[in-house]
């Protein structure tokens, strides 16, 4: 018997969160998830998008650049990494049908970017809007943040981190995730203001190893 011939999967999909809560199976059913693998050195073939950098379309009012590098344990630039970011709009809403409050309506805002570090210059650059605060589900608000996935040759699974903003001290002080970290750990997650946005380097290893999250 094919374990993937699952009964009851012919119903149309509905977003699963929030108030539209139908479409669940009536019996608990578990399939084993497909294991991850490295993107390898040739990810540029399959994963290059001409518009990858534009989480917010060019010319969107309030647009900023988030730039940075990915650094390995020897302090060398990782020149074949892919960085993806996902975030809320300035009102704290996500351009996703999975947002139970309804999707973001900010024009030109995709909320998602995919960029590669190629040498030169060995940097990634994402054009976006600074996110607003997002409910933490426990009555509080999270500080503005981007969720970040880093993929590269040598990483058999993505690694996940968050970009927070160094100039949001008050919001950061109330953020449940940051509060769970030491001061040294917190520093690895803070993007520093620059002329046209922010800078955030990812340190895969070393004294300044970035805090990575298990999601």
């Amino acid at each position: 018997m094919d374990p993937l011939e699952v009964p009851g999967v012919t119903e149309p999909y509905q977003p699963r969160t929030g108030r539209r809560g139908t479409g669940f199976l009536t019996e608990p059913f578990r399939l084993g998830p497909t294991p991850s693998a490295t993107v390898g050195p040739y990810l540029a073939i399959g994963l290059t998008w001409p518009d990858g950098a534009w989480a917010a379309a060019e010319g969107t009012p309030g647009g900023i650049w988030v730039r940075g590098r990915v650094v390995d344990g020897a302090g060398d630039l990782v020149a074949d990494a892919m960085v993806e970011t996902w975030q809320a709009d300035p009102d704290g809403r996500f351009p996703s049908p999975e947002d139970p409050r309804g999707p973001s309506s900010t024009p030109g805002f995709r909320g998602y970017a995919r960029v590669q570090t190629v040498s030169p210059p060995g940097e990634f650059a994402v054009h976006t809007l600074k996110p607003g605060r997002v409910p933490d589900g426990e009555g509080g608000l999270q500080a503005p943040h981007l969720d970040v996935s880093v993929f590269a040759r040598g990483l058999l699974d993505r690694v996940v981190t968050r970009i927070y903003f160094a100039d949001e001290a008050d919001a950061n002080a109330e953020d449940a995730v940051l509060r769970g970290l030491t001061a040294d750990q917190r520093r690895t997650l803070l993007a520093e203001p620059t002329g046209d946005g922010y800078r955030f380097d990812v340190h895969l290893q070393g004294d300044r190893e970035t805090v990575f999250f298990a999601v």
Binding site: D72, G73, A74, D76, V78, A152, R153, G154, L155, L156, V159, V160, G180, L181, Q185, L204, Q205, E209, T210, V211, F212, F213, A214
Partner: peptide, 9 residues
């Protein structure tokens, strides 16, 4: 030199 060495949070 690439896989993080610390336990993820």
């Amino acid at each position: 030199l690439r896989a993080p060495l610390r336990t993820p949070v």
